[in-house]
Amino acid sequence: MDQRLEALLQTIQKVLPDVDGIIGLKVNAAGHIAPHLFRKEAPAELDGLAIWPKYPTPDTLRLIQKAHPGAKLGMVVRGCEERGVVEMFKHAQVDLSNISLIGLQCTREEAEFCRCAKPYTAHAKLTVGEPIEGVPDPVTEGFLAKTREERLEYWKEQLVRCIKCYGCRNVCPQCFCNVCALEDEKWVGTGWLPMPLPPMYHLVRSMHMTAKCVACRECEEVCPADIPMAIQYRLIAGDVKEMFGYETGVSMDEKPPQLLVLAEGEFERTGLPH
């Protein structure tokens, strides 16, 4: 057994007696992996404990907590998943008071797969594996080197392949709105492929990921057309940090940037005329 997996198993076994269940990943006989709630009633299920490929488990937590608000749970989180639950906590989607986070540090290989800048946890008290530094994101860097015209051309080539599966929205743990703007005909037309330009679906979604995206890249992973939309989310996250000093998932206490009121000094950083 993989060393990290072995260590994770031991940590889970330590935590499990004190909680109602632990959210992690489970593999079946043929190697298919999905999120699972491990419980002490069924200890044998831990034989199927798995760690890769990752899944949007913050959403699993949300689903379970909605039905069992008081449950005492453990949860295995990678850096991105931890940031995910922190953001969801700030938007009152999950309650972290009863949750034991078990941090799972990503390997270099995993981090490179995700082009991840922060492949480590920051809040989890229990952790498994050695944290590593973030890795470069050559895709985003390559995109930044393009001219405006080249960028337009690039997205046209990518987005003509979009089949409007809504997978990027569906899989995103941060997409928890009860009413979704992407399903509002005022903004996004229905029933036609390829979706007409301008790409309203993707423009609106990019806007809505502002100060929410935690760079887990689940959206890219489930995209049938391999459209690297996280490029945009990532760049915007950088701008939001610059303009409004906000970074997703970093601190539990820091409120997401107030949409309504400019804070001291923000106006100057927006680049708008005075």
Partner: peptide, 13 residues
């Protein structure tokens, strides 16, 4: 793309 979307995207890629 409309009848077998996931086959289509596999071919397109």
């Amino acid at each position: 793309t409309e009848q077998h979307p996931i086959i289509a995207t596999r071919l397109i890629k």
